[in-house]
Nucleic acid binder design. Structure first.
Lengths: 340, 340
DNA sequence: AGAATTATCCAAAGCGCTTTGGGGATCGAG
DNA sequence: CTCGATCCCCAAAGCGCTTTGGATAATTCT
């Protein structure tokens, strides 16, 4: 069933039917109701491709999804997506996800923009320098980053968590508790969120006249297996760290297991603070020793990004261009005074 | 840059340029190269909405994603998606995800079909009865289910894991080890995969003259928190179970924590077999006591579904309509002889 | 009552692409 | 030299929708 068939059946022109459906005023109340009813009965749904072609709008936001055999599913990603979806469903938006191999992302974005399928683009996993940001900046499609490239000034719209501040604060707490030997269990080094967290830690350490030995800084995907292995290595270090900062509760999961396995007591022999993205399936308060965390909901970030993107497309002008969210430090049992 | 501009610039007609670009034979080698080069230089990418409108093909597969404030991110979902993406990227396909509140899914699918944005539809989280399946069956768009509705005969294309068989086999193993008191930590009851797993367990129990007390069967979302709480309740049961089947490693995570907290030894005091979807961030072999599992890769299922869907659209006829994958029973340390 | 609005509706153009149905050269064959 | 093939290429229609620019009939104003 298309517009033509529907209008034929009603004995009206396509113009009128289209207007009735889209709430334009140039149509009488009576016909409008008749049209609406017929659309309902016949189950008419407009063809979005045609709509998009005619209006230039698609009610959809695009994102490219990295795909490679070695890249598995990421719970952080789906958590974020659920937030984005929450907002999208309210406004009848949808997403188009273009999978791309990591070395072809720029092209994937280009295709996405040119495709005419999307009104706006969302970008995550920011690196530095990031050619994707350059591309977006020079094209005319609305976009929004989750994260920032490095540096102080930013001439692009973003929503980011103050990762540096979060880890700075966390490290400060640990320093106050008397810790001197730190380790870092971080996400992939190329991502700026990881870099910033490292900087936050190093800054706090430097202020205390300390530093982070390279062999006690680990970078990897944020899964429990990586956390386990890295922590085992940390524990075998001649100067075993007593305080560790951890970029994700997923990493912490493995790390805690390694700590237990070594017969150490979390919060006593060794303190740990993890960043908590509030993954719905992995809550830090449920660990056998509840985890002290820096918290910032990924889902909320997704929802907010959806809100801003959709708002911008609708012409809202009261939306901030750039937002930096502070993470919340929540002290639980995994942190305690430094041993001896 | 659109086709018209490109062809003007080349002094050719849109027809010729289009044909050159799409590899039709009615164009000389020389012009073809000239066109290709110009397209390259100008960065011309065809407008997909227009292409879709003209051809009826979109190189995209659609899926609806349940969205509600109380639904968080699901690592199973993103694991599956990564498999789907792996296949999609090979063929330059993309997805469109339509978020929908749980009570509006049928409509969301209708819109998706009518939208003209997608060539095929993928459906997961099958329930019984499932109105979405009815809808798909009666519409003419290609589709594929991950899972099945209940019953023996199925007149729709699907890929499913033999959930009943998996839990039957798992229960058999436990029975052989002498266990008599079972518990079940399952996914949401409305999903058929959960129902089937329960049936598998009950069948094995019945064959041994045993049964599953209702209070020892727990249904919920598959996260660690739910696993922890349910297991705590199980352990408080007057007839504490010695064997538990668990629908996910995420649930097992919480369950194991409850077991440890109670001072029980996994694989000695209590045995546990979990279904392993091979979540990349949560491997059963890395648990402090490695988990015995029934394994079936969600990612592989995603890839296979992508393969079949894309293959079908390309006209391949050598693809099976229905596939049932056996899960692999992998014995590790979380299972042992029944105590006393 | 005649003019000026106002309320409804329609025909047709256009979004960017593919595809049908030719049409003019070029070339070897008769 | 002419005729049918063979190559290349083009004009125009059509995909399903929105939107511009009227047209017609019904109201209101003076």
């Amino acid at each position: 069933m298309n517009l033509k068939q529907l209008s034929d059946r009603l004995g009206l022109s396509q113009t009128t039917v289209s207007r009735a459906l889209n709430g334009y005023p140039e149509v009488s109340q009576a016909t409008r109701e008749r049209v609406l009813k017929a659309a309902q009965q016949t189950g008419y749904k407009p063809n979005k491709a045609a709509q998009r072609l005619a209006t230039g709008k698609a009610k959809s936001i695009g994102l490219v999804m990295q795909s490679a055999p070695e890249i598995g599913g990421d719970p952080h990603f789906s958590e974020f997506l659920s937030g984005l979806a929450e907002e999208a469903v309210k406004h009848d938006f949808h997403f188009v996800m273009a999978p791309a191999s990591p070395d072809d992302e720029v092209n994937a974005i280009k295709r996405l923009i040119a495709s005419g399928y999307v009104d706006a683009i969302f970008l995550a996993h920011v690196v530095d320098p990031d050619p994707r940001v350059e591309l977006l900046r020079s094209s005319s499609i609305p976009y929004l980053l989750h994260g920032r490239i490095m540096g102080e000034t930013h001439d692009y719209p973003y929503l980011d968590v103050d990762n540096e501040g979060a880890f700075y604060t966390a490290a400060k707490l640990l320093l106050q508790l008397g810790h001197k030997r730190f380790a870092l269990l971080n996400g992939m080094e190329r991502f700026t969120f990881a870099t910033r967290r490292k900087i936050g830690l190093e800054k706090a350490l430097a202020e205390a006249g300390l530093s982070l030995p390279p062999e006690l800084a680990h970078h990897s995907v944020m899964g429990d297996q990586a956390g386990f292995r890295a922590m085992e290595r940390f524990l075998a270090h001649p100067e075993r760290p007593t305080a560790v900062l951890c970029a994700s509760t997923a990493l912490a999961l493995g790390a805690v297991r390694a700590i237990n396995k070594a017969g150490l007591k979390l919060g006593v022999d060794i303190s740990l603070i993890a960043h908590d993205d509030v993954l719905s399936t992995l809550r830090p308060e449920n660990f056998s020793v509840p985890l002290t965390t820096t918290r910032s909901s990924l889902r909320a970030a997704g929802a907010r990004i959806g809100q801003r993107l959709i708002g911008t497309l609708a012409g809202a002008s009261d939306l901030p261009e750039q937002e930096l969210w502070e993470a919340e430090l929540i002290v639980r049992a995994s942190t305690g005074p430094a041993p001896f």
